[in-house]
Design a protein around this nucleic acid. Sequence first.
DNA 1: AAGCTAATGCGAACGAGTTGCAACAGTCAA
DNA 2: TTGACTGTTGCAACTCGTTCGCATTAGCTT
Lengths: 121, 121
Amino acid sequence: MTEQRKVILRVLANADDHPDANELYHRAYALDGSVSLSTVYRTLRLLADRGAIQRHAFEEGRARFDNADREHHDHLIAIDPGQVIEFRSEKIEELQARVASELGYEIVRHKLELYVRKSRD
Amino acid sequence: MTEQRKVILRVLANADDHPDANELYHRAYALDGSVSLSTVYRTLRLLADRGAIQRHAFEEGRARFDNADREHHDHLIAIDPGQVIEFRSEKIEELQARVASELGYEIVRHKLELYVRKSRD
DNA sequence: AAGCTAATGCGAACGAGTTGCAACAGTCAA
DNA sequence: TTGACTGTTGCAACTCGTTCGCATTAGCTT
Ligand SMILES: [Mn+2]
Ligand SMILES: [Mn+2]
Ligand SMILES: [Zn+2]
Ligand SMILES: [Zn+2]
C-alpha cells in the first residue's frame, strides 16, 4: 500500500459528493504533492473493478465516483445547477426485477437516472 | 436537404437495432460513397437536438442511436451478447414521477438501463 | 543490506466526437 | 443563363477524458 493510494482512499472516504477524477486528483494533490493524475486514474479503476467504489457516467462525458461501500441507490440530477441527489425506491427496484424476470433475464446491475428541474407550484 | 442527409435518414429509418455513429456511417457509405463520417456526426447531432432521434450512452463509451419518432421506452441490455431489448413499464414511469415530485422536482428526461443475463431455471 | 515486485510519474497515445476552413451545391433573383 | 448568397460538405487538425509504455522508485521479504 503506497502513500499515494492511502491519500486517494482518504480523499474518497471523505467525499460526500460525486467528484470526477480530476477533482479527486486536486483534492489528493493538496494533501500530498507526490500524487499524479495517472495514479488517480489507475487507483480509481482498480477500486471500481474490485467493487470498492462506484463509477457513474452521467450525461456529460467524464466519470464521477461514489465513495466506498454504500448501499445501492439511484440518482436524481438537477439540470440547472448540476446537483446530484440520491434516492432509493424499493418499489422501483422490485418492478425492475419483475420486468427482467418476465423476459427471462435476471438483473446484474442497473442504472436509473432522473434528470429533473425544480417543480414550480 | 442534401443527398447525404437523405441517405443518412434512410439508413436511420431502416435500422431496427441501436447502431453507433461509425456503424451508421458504414451503412450510409455503402449506399452513397459521398457520405463522410463528419457529416454523419453532424447530422446525428442535428437530429438529436431537434428530438427527431434519440441518443443513448450505454456503458461502453460511444453513443448509440434510436431511430426516429418512437414512443418512450427503456432498455434491457444482455451482457454477454450485447443485445439490446426494449421495454416499457407504466408503473415504473409513474413511480419515478412520484419520487421526483416528493423531492420537489419534475422529471425532464430519464434513463433506465437494466444490465442482465439469461436467468438459469 | 540486497533483491524482487508492484506502483509511480511522465509524456505519448488513444478514441469518440467536434471544428476550422476552403471547396461546393442549392436556391433564387436579375 | 448568369451571378450572388447561404448552408453543407470532406478533410485534417483538434479536443478532452482516459489509458499505456517505459524507465525509475518505493515498499516488502529475505
Ligand atoms: Mn451516489
Ligand atoms: Mn431503443
Ligand atoms: Zn436502483
Ligand atoms: Zn422510462
